[in-house]
């Protein structure tokens, strides 16, 4: 009897683990590669056009997406749309809130980062002084979420802006990332 209980317990535990393993294997099955993947000559698709794409990020392989770069072509980044910290805008299709939440949840956030799928751009709004530190924090956060280098960050389509009620001096200007060419130096 004792042995039957022990054996039964082990079998049940094994069956549970196997079932969980099957479920995990199914849920993490890789997405199919896009048809043009075999024609890639490099990680960055340098086509010769600068037409603004109007589609959502292109899935390249599991955990990665391609977004437009500022000078044409595309960049491969982590699939941030699957990140648990990202909030899909409930009112505006194709808008992903990468930092700060959505709507009134953004009230006290030091910076807001929104991805707009229509032009595959990132909008970073600095909401707290000192702006230099807030910008550094936002840059670090975005770099970690996208999993790209500083160099690649400079190639994104992005704007770093400051609303007028945060700073009249810097509002309305694209400050750029601090480490990118042409960035506005902040005190």
């Amino acid at each position: 009897m004792k042995y039957a209980v022990v054996i039964g317990g082990i079998v049940v535990a094994l069956a549970a683990f196997v079932a969980m393993f099957v479920w995990l294997s199914s849920s993490s099955a890789p997405k199919p590669a896009p048809s043009d993947n075999s024609n890639n000559t490099s990680i960055y698709n340098n086509d010769n056009t600068s037409v603004v794409p109007t589609q959502s990020p292109t899935t390249t392989q599991q955990g990665q997406v391609a977004v437009a770069s500022a000078s044409g072509g595309s960049l491969v980044v982590h699939d941030f749309t699957k990140d648990s910290r990202v909030v899909v805008d409930p009112h505006n299709a194709g808008h992903y809130h990468l930092a700060g939440g959505a709507g009134l949840d953004q009230v006290d956030a030091p910076y807001l980062i929104v991805y707009v799928a229509s032009d595959q751009s990132f909008t970073i709004s600095l909401e707290k002084e000192p702006l230099s530190q807030t910008r550094l924090d936002a840059e670090a956060y975005l770099m970690q979420m996208l999993g790209i280098s500083k160099r690649d960050m400079c190639l994104l389509r992005y704007s770093v802006l400051v609303p007028n009620d945060v700073s009249e001096i810097y509002s309305g200007k694209n400050l750029g990332f601090s480490f990118c060419p042409g960035a506005v130096v902040l005190p």
């Binding site: 009112h91 959505a102 953004q106 929104v114 709004s125 704007s159 509002s171 309305g172």
Partner: peptide
């Protein structure tokens, strides 16, 4: 475009900091 950049930092659902 100029006004919205200054008003909301181009964030479509930004709650005002001052209002």
């Amino acid at each position: 475009s100029c006004i919205t950049q200054k008003e909301s930092g181009c964030v479509v659902d930004r709650p005002s900091q001052s209002d």
